[in-house]
Design a protein around this nucleic acid. Structure first.
Lengths: 229, 229
DNA sequence: TAACAGAATTAGGTTGACCTAAAATAGTGA
DNA sequence: TCACTATTTTAGGTCAACCTAATTCTGTTA
């Protein structure tokens, strides 16, 4: 078994930078500042600058970087970031559907594994799952070619009128929040009836539950909704 | 999402050292030399010495190391090595049984993933598989407490008499060999009838195949057999 | 338009895992 | 037991990804 002779490839760390840029640049693909990246990644701003310079000046640049003006993903960088995102969400779905993980635990495991699975693994779990379009948090899974349908949902905290809505997705970033949401019956697909005046106050009723529920700001911020078609 | 603040933990590299020591020290747990480790791991002997010194002098030493006398695993080191081995073999089994990998491909994927799966993941795939005792190569999977039944098989190349045997296991180290063995019907559990005088020559018949088969030394070395009970 | 605050970059470390080359040691056979 | 060879260790790097502190920008506000 000839062992790989190369140094600990930079993949994991690089992938995390790319993912963070993708997430922070938003649907409009705005430039992302070093500080915001630094705080998201939990490293010093100086480290970010360093890494960006490397990523931008490599033979196949993964980002477009201009001093003091922030970064953007290059085409190649975006491709890679979406591939990692696809890995992440497929793994989450797999853990949830096939291995019966509790919803709150899938993110952390996927966060580690996403960097190390092969194309074959990706393909096999996609087949096993029937090429799912959404992960268990309700997030869309990028297709193999990187295509993603446009978002049609909005943050619950942007709501300005009462009404009935469907939970589109919940944030996977915080296991504790997620567990609390689930305890209240707020999971993707659930029906929400908002009876207070948003966005100052969220009193709502969920599908099976008779009692009205007051949602704290943290919790509301972790929920995206769409109209109850 | 508070990101892990710690440096790229040494786990992966350390695990690989421990695994290599476990494999090389054999069932008798003999001391392992720096050179043999170096060549197995594909690094320079000096690097091995360095690492061993670190492993031996850490607060919880994973190896017992004496200058010029080779290493042994400590109790803690052995525990960890067996845990990683368990991960490896469970993952192989999982890839083979659940994700329909071809036998030759499971090793490489498991080799990467074994370092990064959680206890929960381990437990879930073990449950899913019904707590298997053997991986698809025929190797025994260590129990959670590290217990392993004693080997009762022997290398085909140690055979000194003709007779009929059962393939106990095949080496997972070389995908090409493995594919060739499989092409000849030599997979764990297969019946082998050896008709030449071993160990100079291996002419044999396998279960379903009528034609006699001459096995090259490489191939024979990758096969372990036990008596056809 | 000068000055200042805050953001970003540069300069100069640290650490872990590797490397090569040089020095030390152990085991062997004369 | 002495010397020689093969193994092992030490000494002194490199490189990637971090860090802190010092410096340089930028955009705004007086």
């Amino acid at each position: 078994m000839p062992p790989s002779r190369q140094r600990n490839a930079n993949t994991e760390s690089v992938d995390n930078y790319l993912k963070a840029i993708l997430a922070l640049s938003g649907p409009e693909e705005q430039r992302v500042s070093s500080t915001s990246l630094a705080s998201r990644l939990g490293v010093a701003p100086a480290s970010v600058t360093n890494m960006l310079q490397k990523l931008a000046s490599s033979p196949l640049p993964l980002v477009e970087y201009e001093r003091h003006r922030g970064v953007l993903l290059s085409a190649a960088g975006k491709r890679r970031a979406l591939e990692v995102l696809r890995h992440h969400r497929l793994i989450e779905t797999f853990l949830y559907e096939v291995l019966d993980y509790p919803l709150e635990e899938v993110h952390e495991e996927a966060e580690r594994l996403e960097h190390f699975i092969s194309e074959r693994f990706e393909e096999r779990i996609a087949v096993k799952l029937g090429h799912p379009k959404f992960d268990p948090h309700g997030h869309c899974i990028p297709a193999m070619d990187g295509k993603m349908p446009k978002q049609t949902s909005m943050p619950l905290t942007d709501l300005r009128e009462q009404g009935t809505f469907v939970v589109d997705s919940v944030s996977d970033q915080d296991a504790l929040l997620l567990r609390r949401l689930r305890a209240h019956g707020i999971t993707p697909g659930a029906r929400l009836q908002v009876t207070s005046r948003p966005p100052d106050d969220f009193v709502l009723r969920t599908s099976g539950v008779s009692k009205a529920l007051h949602l704290s700001r943290d919790l509301a911020a972790a929920v995206r909704i769409r109209s109850a078609h």
